[in-house]
Amino acid sequence: MPKSAVPSAPPRLTIAKLARSIGVSPATVSNALNDRGHLSARTRARVLEAVAQSGYAPSFTAKALRTGRTQTVGLILPNITNPVFPLMAQEIEREVSARGQAVMLMDSQGDLGAQARALESLRGRGVDAIILVACRGTQQGDVPDGVILIDAPSNPRSDVSSDHFLGGQLAARHLLDLGHRRIGALAGPQNSRVAQERYRGAASVLHAAGLDFVPRVHSSYGLEHGESYAAQHLPGACSAVYAVSDSLAVGLIRGLQARGLRVPDDLSVMGFDDVVWAELITPPLSTIRQNAPAIARFAVRLAMGESVETRAVPVELVVRQSTRPRQV
């Protein structure tokens, strides 16, 4: 039986072929595509219309050989399964794509060694810029010069981040305004700058009111740690709990419900991040919303050399049904 013929790919449409079909020079097509040169509005419009009709797509390989740039931005995330980071990655990809470039995504899985290997891999591939969302324990010396770092503002090397300290302050003020005076804390990992800024911001507000968090527990992120807190600490010890991440807060709510306790009737719960879970859990979670689009815009501008300003992006208090005034 004769083998089926495998259809060959159609020949690639080049600038030279496109130029011949229009009756202009390849330089004219290139200038129209890159918005440069001294072309009349009529010529530019004619070329761009022909390009749109032809379905022509530029060769990034050829452009890289010509310009020495790959038109690619590397992005390293610490945990792609954390709902915060896919949203940030989507916004970064949108910003990079709008500039005619592409994103190469890598996941360090929260491991410093994997993060170092990802940085080395991206540099070896010649990406034009690297944006790094630092994993826990990252030190200044771990980040090569030129890498755009998204971390906590307390890291002098950080280029852009949420104002985590402000978010902690907003969370604590919300609970105090509701009349809570005995407040517990799920304070997150002690080796995380982000978690500890969120905790210190809240603690500063409580200390100004002559109060402190009781009980306070440090742990990794994750639903199971919130559930464990619910199992080990009686609601009678406090009337509200502030968790430095929504994953901890959601785990806490689930753990309380497993014990037959009600949120917020028996205990108010406050989170941080405003991930998709925050609205899906019952009751919906009061939390602090990060502005992922703004972080993405600033990070990409820095990566593209469009801005040199360090930014601490403001956050927003989102009040839902998991918090209520303290019951007398």
Results as ranks from 00 to 15, higher is better:
residue 14 T to K: 05
residue 17 K to E: 15
residue 18 L to V: 08
residue 19 A to I: 13
residue 21 S to V: 11
residue 23 G to E: 09
residue 26 P to V: 07
residue 26 P to R: 03
residue 30 S to T: 15
residue 37 G to F: 09
residue 37 G to T: 12
residue 40 S to K: 10
residue 40 S to P: 01
residue 41 A to D: 15
residue 43 T to A: 07
residue 49 E to D: 15
residue 55 G to A: 11
residue 70 T to S: 09
residue 73 V to R: 02
residue 76 I to Y: 04
residue 78 P to H: 10
residue 79 N to F: 05
residue 81 T to D: 10
residue 86 P to L: 12
residue 86 P to D: 03
residue 104 M to S: 02
residue 120 E to W: 03
residue 122 L to K: 07
residue 122 L to D: 04
residue 125 R to Y: 14
residue 126 G to F: 07
residue 126 G to A: 01
residue 129 A to E: 09
residue 129 A to R: 05
residue 130 I to E: 00
residue 131 I to L: 00
residue 133 V to Q: 06
residue 139 Q to C: 13
residue 141 G to V: 12
residue 146 G to R: 12
residue 151 D to G: 04
residue 155 N to H: 10
residue 155 N to A: 15
residue 161 S to W: 06
residue 167 G to F: 15
residue 168 G to E: 10
residue 170 L to P: 01
residue 172 A to G: 10
residue 173 R to F: 01
residue 175 L to H: 12
residue 176 L to F: 06
residue 180 H to G: 05
residue 180 H to F: 15
residue 182 R to E: 03
residue 186 L to F: 04
residue 188 G to T: 03
residue 192 S to H: 05
residue 199 Y to D: 02
residue 208 A to G: 06
residue 209 A to C: 12
residue 215 P to N: 02
residue 216 R to K: 14
residue 219 S to V: 11
residue 220 S to T: 13
residue 222 G to N: 11
residue 228 S to Q: 14
residue 230 A to G: 12
residue 236 G to T: 13
residue 236 G to W: 03
residue 237 A to G: 14
residue 239 S to N: 06
residue 244 V to Y: 01
residue 245 S to F: 00
residue 246 D to P: 00
residue 250 V to R: 11
residue 251 G to D: 02
residue 251 G to N: 06
residue 256 L to N: 02
residue 257 Q to W: 14
residue 258 A to V: 03
residue 260 G to Q: 10
residue 267 L to K: 05
residue 269 V to A: 02
residue 274 D to I: 07
residue 275 V to A: 02
residue 275 V to G: 04
residue 281 I to E: 04
residue 281 I to V: 15
residue 281 I to C: 01
residue 281 I to W: 03
residue 283 P to Q: 11
residue 285 L to I: 09
residue 293 P to E: 09
residue 299 A to E: 08
residue 303 A to V: 12
residue 304 M to A: 15
residue 314 P to G: 11
residue 315 V to D: 00
residue 318 V to E: 07
residue 320 R to A: 05
residue 323 T to D: 05
residue 326 R to W: 03
